[in-house]
Structure formats: C-alpha cells, structure tokens
C-alpha cells in the first residue's frame, strides 16, 4: 500500500467510491478493508485494477450503484467508503 499526503492525493485524484458522483468513472486502486469484505468483493468480480462507472450515487446514504465488468452492482455506503478509486480524466 502506498501512503500519500493529502496534497498528492488531490493531484492524482484519489477518492473513496462513496464520494464519486453519478456518471464518474475510474479505476480501483485499493480496498482498505478487512479480509471478509475484500473476499466478498473479489467473489463478485471486483478487484484492484478494475475499471468502473458510477451509475447512481445519492447523498441519502443509500448504496452506490456501479457498472463493472458489464454488470450493475449495488454496494452499501460503508463498503463504498473502503474502495479507493483513481478518477479517470
């Protein structure tokens, strides 16, 4: 895992998935969670390095709907906070 200070983070556009807006896309660069969640994400085909598009994300605390590998997946907010995305230009 690479640790970065906040300035660097901004410049390379790293964000938790939960903060992405509908329509934004990016690449998963890290999954900062425990063994169980990471495993569940891997099971459904979500891995570090994968590209995804956010289809829907609301401010209400509901799940984030993403499109990944041609499949729509709803991810709980708590989970989305632990997935770090590198935004596409």
């Amino acid at each position: 895992m690479i640790s970065l200070d906040s300035k660097q983070k901004q410049s390379i556009r790293l964000l938790p998935l939960s903060q992405l807006l509908s329509g934004q896309s990016g690449k998963i660069v890290d999954i900062t969670s425990g063994w169980h969640l990471r495993r569940r994400l891997n099971q459904i085909g979500i891995h570090i390095g994968d590209q995804l598009v956010v289809k829907r994300n609301t401010v209400l605390g509901g799940p984030v709907l993403i499109l990944i590998h041609h499949c729509e997946i709803a991810l709980g907010k708590g989970m989305a906070e632990k997935i770090i995305i590198h935004l596409n230009e």
Partner: peptide, 9 residues
Amino acid sequence: DTPGMIMEI
C-alpha cells in the same frame, strides 16, 4: 461488522 450489501442488479 456488516459493511453493507453487495448485490447484483
């Protein structure tokens, strides 16, 4: 510690 749902739509 249930981080939430993972569900295919």
